[in-house]
Simulated scan of single mutants.
Amino acid sequence: MDKYEAEKIAKQVGETLRKIRKERGMSLQQLAETTDVSKLTLGNIERGEANPSLTVIWKIANGLSIPLSFLLQENEEVKISRKHRGNKVLSANEACTLEPMFEGTHHGSSEIHRAFLKPNSEYKPGAHQLGVTEYVTVMSGEVKIKIEDEYYHLYEYDSIKFSGDKKHAYINPTSSTTVLHFVMTYSNS
């Protein structure tokens, strides 16, 4: 991701976050308590001075009970989502690149992502907010998904559905990048 793209995403996330916070009549302190993200970090994000990691964006989305893609939305009537050209966020360990696709223009009840999981790596989003259902399809490669204490091994074009509010992780056991397609639904939106 180039510097311009990172700045654009940071500005977009900040503007959207400020809008949501004001709509809900929340102070930065209340937002910090709700999301478990520091007031200083949230202020920097709102001003577009920080490019938040995927972990921080998930904390904010979970705390506000909104789809992650809502924070990254772009207002366009027709949109094509091309690989590696849209918004993207990295997991804290940079093992996973998540590309939100077809963001909604309001607090939506579902979202779609494409994800690229590096070879021999693990992405641990943890548990999402209550009511999230994840639908994951392996588009290329393979993945082991750990949900609570159970492992599920999926291969190309295999799909799985599970409650995203359970602790889970994605493991790429191969020496090639795994490409995943996510659909996430939110029953409490």
Rank of each mutant, 00 (worst) to 15 (best):
H106E: 14
S91H: 00
E94P: 04
S91T: 02
H128I: 01
D158F: 04
S187H: 05
I80K: 09
G48W: 12
T185G: 09
L68V: 06
E148Y: 11
F102S: 15
C96Q: 07
E150C: 02
A61E: 09
E122V: 15
F162R: 00
I147L: 05
D158P: 06
Q30I: 05
Q73M: 11
D158C: 01
F162H: 02
K161N: 04
K8E: 04
R21G: 08
L64C: 01
G63I: 00
E46T: 07
V89D: 13
N120Y: 08
G141A: 02
N188I: 09
A169L: 09
D165M: 06
P52H: 12
S91L: 03
L130A: 05
S38P: 02
E99M: 02
K39W: 03
V143W: 05
G104K: 09
L31F: 06
Q73W: 15
K88P: 05
K11F: 05
L54P: 10
S91D: 01
Y4G: 05
L180Y: 13
V143N: 00
T41R: 04
Y170A: 01
C96M: 15
L54E: 14
F162P: 02
I171Y: 11
I60E: 02
A127H: 03
S27Y: 00
Y4H: 11
G14I: 06
K166Y: 12
K79T: 07
S159H: 05
A32G: 00
L64E: 01
V78K: 15
K22R: 12
L71S: 11
T105A: 08
I66V: 06
